[in-house]
Computed example of a mutant assay.
Amino acid sequence: MTQEAFAGKLGVSVRSVASWRANPDMIPQQETQRILDTTLAMAGDAVRRRFIHLSRTAIAQPEVQALRVAIAVVRRGGDVLLVCRQDGEDIAWQFPAGIVKPGGSASKVAVRETLAETGVHCTVREHLGERLHPHTHAMCDYFVCDYVHGEAINGDSSENVAVAWAPIAELARFIPTDRIYPPILDALEATV
């Protein structure tokens, strides 16, 4: 239908229909919405299918992805690799991690960021799971990794204050256990 024909069918002004077309995000007044709903309900199946298709196409927006972080829990014998981050005034030990770009591989990011931040080469042994981090609200993928070679060095002094191999048995001295994803603790206990 033309805008004029559609306005005549609804009993509204042509200017109103033109305004809806120009501003598709506009929310009609309650009475106008009732008229539109009734008209759609009375339309045939083909018209309703076309309306649904067009409305989905019109409001389709790029998919938004939550911030995703890959976390590497690198084991070497009875030790685990940690980085000490400085975030403003806070200094905290944590496992090496990196941001996963949309469409990227979390396991590859875990390995690549571990090497970049610490100089340690590792391989992924197991994906431990994922969760929405309770403090950062980032979606986190956790990987247990095996040490391959390399000396632990601070490869990213803009993010890290230090890098260290911490004894797994003393991990709580570095990171409070209530802040560690429980499957990590289970995986590390299995190696001690």
Rank of each mutant, 00 (worst) to 15 (best):
Ile71Lys: 08
Ala72Ser: 13
Ala72Tyr: 04
Val73Arg: 04
Val73Ser: 06
Val74Ser: 00
Arg76Phe: 00
Gly77Gln: 08
Gly77Phe: 07
Gly77Tyr: 05
Gly78Leu: 10
Asp79Val: 02
Val80Glu: 04
Val80Asn: 05
Val80Leu: 03
Leu81Ala: 01
Leu81Ser: 00
Leu82Glu: 03
Val83Lys: 00
Val83Gln: 06
Val83Ile: 07
Cys84Val: 10
Cys84Met: 11
Gln86Lys: 08
Asp87Arg: 10
Asp87Ser: 12
Gly88Arg: 15
Glu89Ser: 14
Glu89His: 10
Asp90Pro: 10
Asp90Met: 15
Ile91Met: 11
Ile91Leu: 15
Ile91Gln: 15
Ala92Ile: 08
Ala92His: 13
Trp93Gly: 13
Trp93Ser: 08
Trp93Ala: 14
Trp93Glu: 14
Gln94Trp: 15
Gln94Glu: 12
Gln94Tyr: 10
Phe95Val: 10
Phe95His: 09
Pro96Met: 06
Ala97Arg: 14
Ala97Val: 12
Gly98Ala: 02
Gly98Val: 01
Gly98Arg: 02
Ile99Ala: 09
Lys101Ser: 14
Pro102Thr: 08
Gly103Leu: 15
Gly103Thr: 11
Gly103Arg: 08
Gly104Asp: 11
Ser105Phe: 12
Ala106Asp: 14
Ala106Phe: 11
Ser107Ala: 14
Ala110His: 05
Arg112Pro: 02
Thr114Glu: 02
Thr114Asp: 01
Thr114Ser: 04
Leu115Ala: 10
Glu117Gln: 13
Glu117Leu: 05
Glu117Met: 10
Glu117Asn: 06
Thr118His: 04
Thr118Glu: 07
Thr118Asn: 03
Thr118Ala: 04
Val120Ser: 02
Val120Ala: 04
His121Gly: 00
His121Thr: 03
Cys122Leu: 00
Cys122Trp: 00
Val124Gln: 02
Val124Trp: 03
Arg125Tyr: 01
Arg125Trp: 03
Arg125Lys: 12
Arg125Asp: 05
Arg125Ile: 07
Arg125Pro: 02
Arg125Leu: 06
